[in-house]
Amino acid sequence: MLVNWKYRPRNTIIQRLDPRARLAFMACMIIAITTLWDLRIVIPLFVIAMTLYLLARIEWQDVKRAWFFILTLVSIIVTINLFLGARGGPPSVRNDQSPYLFQLATFTVPGVGWTFNIGLTVNKLMFVISQFLRMMTMAIMGIPIPYTLDPSLYGATFKHMRLPDKVAYSIDLAFRLVPSYGRDFALTVDAQRARGYEVEHLKGGLFERIRRLAPLIVPVVVHAIIAGDEIIDAMELRAFGTHPRTWSRVLHFETRDYVLMVLGLVILAGSIVMGVAQIGADIWVPPFLYELVGA
């Protein structure tokens, strides 16, 4: 069991971008898309996100597990939400008066008189497609980050985003400690196996099986804390925190970073303007769908 970063240098335009520009653009896109439901706007944003993802040139072999997980999770959540009435969306879905594409059953709860219609209306169909694309756009913006952002740059990135030295250094240190703890965990698993502990065959009920994970977790945690004391001593001996820290990795914006950030700001400003003007904040139904159901 080896802890490996997903990051690999790939010589792509995405990896040549400044991490701050990428995070800023991602923030703009996420904020923008959370305010919009109209597919005529959601689809272009999805295409932008997909284009950036493809430009990152991440190998399918590396990312297929993440895709499977995200597609499953998004599909389950969208389906649950649809089953519960597709509420939570824009006004035309909350007060849905549109015709049914199909209707499987209608039933009334005895006693309370609540009526449920199991089926799919025109508005709900467009809502589900829009919701799926919105969630996927956000996921697609996030997926490439671990694969394309050098772990040694996280601390410097946040420092250059004006986070306090101590917080940025803590982030930096956390990333550097990961391989050591991954190795410690693997060693602990091996040591416990040598004592007859069967990781794959934990016996007992669910609670008992969780309790039996303690021999794997406790040694790693205790060892990390003891070793941490030595790190603290070393840092204090070097007067950590008494002066502003210097960083070996210095980030500089290039023209391409400004272009990306301006694009992000344009998308964000556009979404705010559309939100104020009540454009794109509701679902869009293509006219042929109404013709399809004869409405």
Partner: peptide, 23 residues
């Protein structure tokens, strides 16, 4: 308080949480 001790233990906690979550 957020001194050297907290900086280091926050990093240790984050790294452990990350590794054990990954597992």
């Amino acid at each position: 308080q957020f001194g050297t001790r907290e900086v280091v233990y926050a990093a240790i906690g984050a790294a452990l949480y990350g590794v054990l979550s990954w597992v």
